[in-house]
């Protein structure tokens, strides 16, 4: 199953060849819910909860209409791009909630697995598609998305700032970016590398590289500086304390509970909760009036 990432993608500046080879080797295991990727499976409901909540919240803020985040159609009709979709764990869930989802991954074998798995569920085929490509390649096409998600990818890319700007450029005005990644703290090293890979061997050694971890404050800083090509407003304009304004961006810690093997979405601003895994949401400013 070892597949060398194909030529097209090697030209993409953020794709790290050895990372992609690593995930390709493991690709057969994507849908073993208790195997290599069990942490991602158990993380999925909570990532989806965060996405639903943010949609319910922004709808309420904007139109003062209360939408029930427990309704199943919250993403109905939205164009969603899942960058680094792997086996399609998140893509399938997004599609079930009504979004038109495109999942892309730099690994051809991951895309093959994702396609195969989706084909087993006849309810998915109409609004879910996968493509072996990179975000940089999509940037050359005109299509832009209401939502771009990239979960647990940032810590695996080369040149993360270029990766972030590519993702950002793929978003329509007023669109949403959802990321999840791991912070660069001693705790994160201990949990994700020392314990998960070396001591407990729950995750294949070499999956993570400490120096690639990114802190929430670095993401916030990035989006305070960042300007879209078509809009001079920063994505994050205000900070109070260390936290961005709730309507512009949000950081939420993900805490693993080994007793129930599930993840807990820590409350906003919970002390220390973002020291390891965390979710990040930021919104592209609307069109200039």
């Amino acid at each position: 199953m070892t597949m060398v990432p194909s030529r097209v993608l090697l030209g993409s500046s953020t794709v790290n060849a050895s990372e992609i080879a690593h995930f390709s080797r493991l690709s057969a295991q994507w849908w073993d819910e208790r195997g290599e990727f069990s942490f991602l499976h158990s993380m999925n409901p909570i990532r989806m909860q965060f996405i639903r909540q943010k949609f319910a919240e922004t709808t309420l803020d904007e139109s003062e209409t209360k939408i029930d985040s427990t309704k199943t159609g919250v993403l109905m009709g939205l164009d969603v791009l899942d960058v680094g979709c792997g086996g399609g764990l998140l893509s399938e869930s997004l599609a079930r909630l009504g979004a038109r989802v495109l999942g892309i991954d730099a690994s051809e074998s991951n895309i093959a697995i994702a396609k195969h798995h989706a084909s087993l569920d006849s309810t998915l085929n109409s609004n879910l598609s996968y493509k072996h490509t990179s975000a940089e390649v999509l940037l050359n096409r005109p299509k832009r998305f209401d939502v771009v998600c990239s979960m647990e990818v940032l810590e695996h890319v080369d040149n993360p700032t270029a990766f972030l700007s590519t993702c950002a450029e793929l978003i329509k005005p007023s669109g949403h970016l959802f990321l999840s990644t791991i912070s660069r703290t001693p705790l994160a090293y201990l949990l994700t590398i020392f314990l998960a890979e070396k001591a407990l061997r729950k995750v294949t050694e070499g999956t993570h590289t400490y120096s690639k971890y990114i802190k929430p404050s670095e993401l916030i800083e990035y989006f305070r500086e960042y300007r879209s090509l078509d809009n001079s407003r920063p994505w994050i304009s205000r900070i109070s304390g260390d936290l961005p304004t709730r309507t512009e961006a949000e950081v939420r810690g993900l805490v693993y509970n080994p007793l129930q093997s599930n993840w807990i979405l820590a409350p906003r601003g919970a002390w220390g909760a973002t020291d390891c895994n965390y979710l990040f949401w930021v919104r592209k400013p609307g069109p200039v009036q």
């Binding site: 819910e33 499976h41 999925n44 989806m48 639903r52 309704k71 869930s93 129930q260 599930n262």
Partner: peptide
């Protein structure tokens, strides 16, 4: 099952059913 459905999960998956056993 409801939790799984509202979060776009697959109601037949181990992930959706695990909380039931627990």
């Amino acid at each position: 099952i409801e939790d799984a459905v509202v979060s776009g999960g697959d109601v037949g998956s181990y992930t959706a059913l695990l909380p039931y056993t627990q």
